[in-house]
Amino acid sequence: MISALPSVPLSVGAHRVIKGVRVEHLCGDPSLSPEQDSELMLRIARTALKALQTEVTEPTLFEPAQFTEKEPAHAH
């Protein structure tokens, strides 16, 4: 599962947890350019597929590479 608050599903025993961006925009980031935003969504989706193909025995977090460092513009 993709979650913006991974500590919650991990604490109740979800097995394959993918870190999403934020609650309000889980699988993308509106502060990015459309191209970067699509790329981010694709990275999250690929991470989810990687998690599905990974053997796990306990709640495990999968983090998509290279999240944007920039503070999103809408965060106020």
Binding site: C27, S38, A45
Partner: peptide, 12 residues
Amino acid sequence: VNPNYALPLPAL
């Protein structure tokens, strides 16, 4: 802005 943020259909 983008309902696909909740359901990454374009990426899939």
